[in-house]
Simulated scan of single mutants.
Amino acid sequence: MIVDSTSHAVTPSLRRRMACWMYEGLLMFGVVFIAGYLFSALSQTRNAMDNRHAQQAFLFVVFGIYFVWFWAKGQTLAMKTWNIRVVDKHGARITQKRALLRYVLSWLWFMPPLVVSWAFGLPAREAAVLALGWIPIWAILARFHPERQFWHDAMAGTRLVTSLPSRSPRKPA
Rank of each mutant, 00 (worst) to 15 (best):
G64L: 11
L26R: 01
R148C: 03
R143C: 15
Q75S: 09
R125L: 12
V87T: 15
G157W: 00
R85Y: 09
V61D: 02
A54N: 12
M28L: 13
G36A: 03
L130F: 09
A154M: 12
H90W: 13
A124D: 13
L42S: 02
A119I: 12
Q55R: 15
F144P: 10
F110L: 14
F60M: 07
P112H: 06
M28F: 08
L59D: 07
D50Y: 03
F58H: 14
T45F: 05
F63A: 09
N51W: 03
L114S: 11
G121F: 11
I137F: 13
W71D: 12
A142L: 02
L27Y: 02
Q56D: 06
R93D: 14
W82L: 11
V104L: 15
M111E: 03
S40P: 00
T81P: 03
F67R: 04
D153Q: 10
L108R: 03
A131T: 15
W82R: 08
T95V: 02
W71R: 03
W21M: 12
E126S: 13
Q55P: 01
H152R: 09
G157L: 02
L100I: 06
H152W: 14
A54V: 09
K80F: 11
C20S: 14
L100Q: 08
A48T: 12
F144D: 08
G36E: 02
N51A: 08
L100Y: 09
W118P: 05
W134G: 04
G157Y: 00
L100E: 07
P136C: 01
G74P: 04
G36T: 04
H152C: 10
A139H: 01
L100H: 04
H90T: 11
R102S: 08
A127H: 10
R85Q: 15
F29A: 02
P112T: 09
I34T: 06
R98E: 05
F70S: 13
I140Y: 15
V62F: 13
V115R: 02
W138S: 12
H145G: 07
I94S: 09
G30M: 07
A128S: 11
I65M: 07
I135S: 00
F144G: 10
V62P: 09
A154V: 15
C20Q: 07
L59A: 06
F70A: 12
N47I: 14
V61S: 05
R98P: 00
S106A: 15
G64E: 11
Q55T: 10
V87K: 12
R125F: 07
L77Y: 05
E147M: 05
S43I: 01
A142F: 05
K97A: 10
L77G: 10
I137T: 10
K97D: 01
M111Q: 02
G64S: 11
L105H: 05
A35F: 01
S106R: 06
A142D: 06
